[in-house]
Every structure is written in structure tokens, then in C-alpha cells.
Amino acid sequence: MTSSVLMQAIISGILVGGVYALIGVGLTIIFGVMRVINFAHGDLMMVGMYLTYFLFTQLGIDPFVSVIITIPTMFIFGGIIQKLFINRIIGSLPQNQILLTIGLGLIMSNSAMLAFTSDYKILTTSYSSSSFNIMGISISQPLALSFLITAVITLLLYWFFMKTDTGQAIRATAQDREAAQLMGINVKRMSIIAFGLGASLAGTAGALISPTYYIFPQVGSAFTLKAFVITVLGGMGSIVGATLGGIIIGVVESVGAVTISSDWKDVLVFSIFLLVLLIKPAGLMGKSST
């Protein structure tokens, strides 16, 4: 294998990892604040994808521009789901939380199937397969753009959590729910915001991947699993960790496919996941124990 192949693998791994990071960050926020593992995370992404698809085909809005609409819409959608369902099971048995989100995921994907049929939807933009060349390495135009947007969103989130009152209140809730409540923080509101944020990030990831991928009702499940891996890798609740986790997974998959083989690369991903769990259960960037 030549070094240019390896370079190509690393570069495209990082770019794809950017989108993974966005999914992971959404999941990590939800988990951090509510301690609920959201099995419907990929399905939220799917909703974002359909939204993007219809904005593009019906109104002609470019997927990268329509993110401006997707983010608030998905935020409201996530907030409603939190208020109606997730809220009722915070602090209940973990298996019930898992099953509730599985049930919600089934409802979302099968409603999408009834509404839009199970047909694959393909969003074709003028740049879907465009690329530019830097020193013999081809870089996908849409991927590069989505990586840029991901970077901006992650920075904004970081600022939000560090500098704003609401952001700090959410962090306080994540650290200790009861203490936060005693401090006068509206914990319920914070949970709604957190789930809203998680949903809008998942939706955004869906929007960003749409021009290079495809859309169908069951598209979410593969990404849910990936999101788990990324989140644990980075440390549950850590935004920087999830971002890093996403990029690591992207690169491992991509480089694994050329150095080992594309059929074993997922074993590599899961093995790294288990290793991190065992050696550093709090994840790469996690602070708390277990």
C-alpha cells in the first residue's frame, strides 16, 4: 500500500468523522443531563434527513442552507418528545428507559414508512460527487463543507455551555441533578433544552450527510450504534470527548478498511470501544468515575 492511499484514508476518515462527531455530541448531551441512553437517536437523525429532503425537493433549499431550518425544527421536536415521554421515565429503571426509546424509535421509523413509503430517497445536488485535489489527495466537496459546519456548531456549543447562564445550568444539572434543583435550577426545563439540543444535533448530522448518502425509514439504526461507540469513547457527557471520539472512529474505520480489511473494521471499532470501557471507563475525556 502506498502512502498516498494511507493519506487519502486518513483525510476522508477525519471528514466523515466530523459528521459522526455531531451525532455523538447530541447523544452525549442527552445522556449527560438525563442519564438516559437514547436508542432513538438514529431515528431523530432520520427525521432530520427527511426534513432536509423535502426542503430540497419541494422548496429547492440547499441541504447546507436548510440546516438553519432543521436546527430549530428538530429542537422543538426533541423538546416535545422529552416533555411527553422521556420526562416520565427519568430516574426509573434503566431497562425501561432503554425500551421506551426503542419504542419511540420504532414509532418514528414506521410513521416515516407510512408517510413516505419505504423507498430510498436520494438527494442529488450538483456537488454530490464533486471533489477537489490537494497534492494528489481528493477531498469530497460536500464532506469538506459539512466538516466546516460541524466545526462551527461544536465551537458554538462549547461557547454556549461555558459562557451562557443556561449552558452552565445544564452543566450543573448534568453534574448533580438534585443539587442543581436545590440551587433553584429548573431541572425539567434544562432536560427539555438538553433533549432539544440532542435532537437538533442529530437532525443536523442527518442534513449534512444527506447530499452524499441516502434516506429511508430504517436508516437510523446503524447510526445509533455508532453514536453509542463514539459517546462512550469520548466519555459520556463530554462534548469535546464526543467530537474527538467521532473523528477517531471515522479514521479507524477508514484506515482499518485499507490496512486490515473492510469486513473486519467494525470489529476493530468495537474492540477499541471495549478497551476504552475497561481501561478508562469514564472515556477519553471523562472526569467522573464509572
Binding site: 492511499v5 466523515v16 450527510i209 452524499t212 471515522g250
Partner: peptide, 9 residues
């Protein structure tokens, strides 16, 4: 979603 590395090989 990503076949780029395989394809470049």
C-alpha cells in the same frame, strides 16, 4: 457511508 479509502486502494 464511506468507501473512499477502499476505492483509493
Amino acid at each position: 457511508p464511506d468507501f473512499r479509502s477502499t476505492l483509493s486502494k
